[in-house]
Write a protein that binds this DNA or RNA. Structure first.
Lengths: 162, 162
DNA sequence: CTGAGTGCAAACAGTTTGCATTACT
DNA sequence: AGTAATGCAAACTGTTTGCACTCAG
């Protein structure tokens, strides 16, 4: 199993919002939706904002533990589920045994992932032609397509050199 | 958890080979690669051929159990791993907690998946414009792209009617 | 006869759940 | 006060592994 796919991410310009903005946005939306505010949940939101793209529950746990916040795993999973239900984060399943999550920036550019099969690093990209092809295709199926996901696999530049 | 995504599949014309051909092909290739032939492994291959696209290890297990073959789960997983390593099946991770596998037909048209978020059904499609966009995009990254995976999510026609 | 392949059961990893407790509102 | 949210630990699910046994080459 490849090492932890850290935020190596050649992140594309990520919409108009920064991660600090997203933290506020997420907390506000949850409160609007009638949810109580709590320290553990806020900590999870903040961790997501800081860790960025393609984070696992375990990574959030370690991050929080490292900075001294004590949040039970159950609460992490429950927060992630709530955030997902409220369209504030997306699940990015890249096909390792574990699910990754990432902040969904409000008007932010929608991106996809490149996964290095050798070292496990995950990086992001966006591509208009690809989006266009998917949009057209979606119009032609009888499915009511609400989301899509593209994963490219291969070898990252630094692994190619070895 | 949605019901088992059975072979609902609006299967596109799947290359030139039938599932019977694939069974032979797979067994031949394994033997060429120096692997011994064994009944349990052959049973897994045959199950894959019969069940078709997007099958889980558990489904293979049930299928085999149903027809009286006694193959341990460990052997099923080991066979799947071997077949994957030899490019005879692909893993299709659609983002439920479990991995799906499907036969890789030799010259067969490469396809992607539509997943119904309501009932869990998985169907297949192929689209040239999409492939083209991905090919061009792949040429532009520093990644050495060797594979790609596209998943569309939404609601299937029959769920839309309810 | 030799080791690739098997089956069982135990081990594992990620995630979920039941329940008593805490703490927003 | 009332109840949403938490934390712990136990339960579950999918998958992997150790080991003694079997059988194809």
């Amino acid at each position: 199993m490849p090492a932890r796919p850290e935020a190596w991410l050649s992140s594309p310009a990520v919409g108009a919002t920064t991660s600090a903005d997203w933290t506020r946005h997420a907390l506000d939306r949850l409160s609007e939706a009638g949810h109580r505010s709590s320290a553990p949940r806020a900590a999870v939101v903040e961790a997501l904002a800081e860790l960025g793209c393609g984070v696992t529950a375990r990574e959030i746990d370690e991050h929080l533990r490292g900075r001294g916040s004590r949040v039970g795993v159950a609460s992490i999973y429950r927060s992630l589920e709530l955030l997902t239900r409220n369209r504030l984060v997306t699940r990015v399943d890249v096909g390792e045994g574990t699910v990754r999550y990432e902040p969904l920036h409000p008007g932010g550019g929608h991106h996809h992932h490149l996964v290095c099969d050798t070292c496990g690093k995950v990086s992001a990209f966006e591509d208009d032609a690809l989006e266009r092809a998917i949009r057209q295709l979606s119009g032609r199926t009888e499915f009511e397509v609400s989301a899509h996901d593209v994963t490219l696999r291969g070898e990252c530049p630094s692994c190619q050199r070895h």
